[in-house]
Design a protein around this nucleic acid. Structure first.
Lengths: 224, 224
DNA sequence: TATGATTTAATAGTAATACTATTATTTTTG
DNA sequence: CAAAAATAATAGTATTACTATTAAATCATA
């Protein structure tokens, strides 16, 4: 995959970090290994102490970059959705047919993720795995409304809005574009999770059945 | 609503509790007030200490019923899905037409929940709110696979399997019944949450648009 | 190269949480 | 009424998620 030119930087809400981790070596090591460690032990068991030990640095040094682990997770999530948005725009660019555009966007949002070598310190395929397992929990909290006001979920909402606009181009009469788009984005994460942990309630454990195909077929029937 | 006859007891996996809370007064008070307290402060801030204070009892007494708060949440979730399953079976019983049956089941799974007065110590409409906000988190953990083996999510999976069977009766050729069913069950919870916290990415903040209607329309187009 | 500024590391400490263990007291039951 | 069971009270532990302080290392530049 070659989607992000090296000179482009994904911009992240400044309230999510104390010090921009992309500006220093230690910061990049924090990003790199927090992704790997969260993937390994899960967000609940992930601590700054363990992370510090792994990167040969100190707990308190991690705190100079991120206020707490929740903010770090929100940072990683924003990075992820920003990257998805970028790839989505890239995928539909210069395409004429609205339905073709929508299909390409759906492919980006629901498809499997390969590592993008252009960012050495972020392993996108592992990041995708932790988004599948952990992202939903970032907004299922008592603090959602405040954090939403602070714009912590803006990039995620952007992806959904972009997708719903593409749907509207296919069928301007359809009344539920926003819910259809949010269902697909969240639903794809959920089906990926089921595939890994609850094979009895998903069809995508079977090799010949494909998630993206399911969504493309469904929206064709719903919108056309 | 009059769905559960007083003499019927929802059976819950015995590994979820130390002592069956439905057998004693204190147990019922624990169920009643844990639902209210989780709704009030959220699962993360919910502790057995606070619960003990509220029910005028002791932290350690709560531990005699539930090993920890996660198991308590799993207990409440099982109770909820068991109740949904019961209502679903009840709703389709004696109905002939497969499509009519499916529509009725979808209505149970996606519709708003009113309190069922037959169980005095469980407020179903509050329980529904905490399921919307907290249930997904119960399986997004590193322990899913073990807990799944223990049968902690059996009732939830039952609901989805029942729903997918009804879909198969409508269209035996459709290849994605399980994923369609799990998408609807999880998707409905998600859309309810969006309605409460992320109005920009759902259509159901608008009064004239209805979640159940959206799902019934969608499955009609997908299955027929 | 010296000086100051910034960054990072190390240490210690705190409040809260999620328990466990023990004993005393109350309630239930036969 | 006595024995058994349930509950309450108290205390204690390990871990977590931080904060504060100071020391050491690195860097930037006059």
């Amino acid at each position: 995959m070659e989607t992000i030119p090296r000179n482009i930087h994904l911009v992240i809400n400044e309230k999510l970090f104390v010090k921009d981790p992309e500006t220093t070596n230690l910061g990049k090591r924090i990003l790199e290994h927090s992704i790997l460690l969260i993937d390994e032990v899960g967000f609940e068991a992930f601590t700054f102490k363990k992370l510090g030990q792994i990167i040969g640095s100190n707990e308190s040094s991690v705190y100079r970059y991120f206020e707490n682990k929740h903010k770090l997770m929100l940072y990683l999530s924003s990075w992820y959705w920003s990257w998805v948005e970028y790839r989505m725009i890239f995928a539909v660019h210069n395409i004429e047919d609205p339905l073709d555009k929508l299909h390409r966007a759906i492919r980006v949002v629901t498809g499997d993720v390969l590592d993008d070598d252009r960012t050495i310190y972020i392993n996108e395929s592992v990041l995708n795995r932790i988004i599948i397992a952990e992202f939903t929990k970032t907004f299922l909290t008592k603090e959602v409304d405040e954090e939403n006001k602070e714009g912590f979920f803006k990039v995620y909402k952007n992806v959904i809005c972009k997708l719903s606009e593409l749907m509207l181009d296919v069928n301007p009469e359809y009344p539920y574009v926003k819910s259809l788009a949010s269902s697909i984005v969240e639903g794809a994460l959920h089906q990926h999770y089921l595939k890994a942990h609850f094979q009895t309630i998903t069809d995508f454990a079977e090799k010949d059945k494909d998630l993206t195909e399911f969504y493309i077929q469904s929206i064709n029937k719903i919108l056309l």
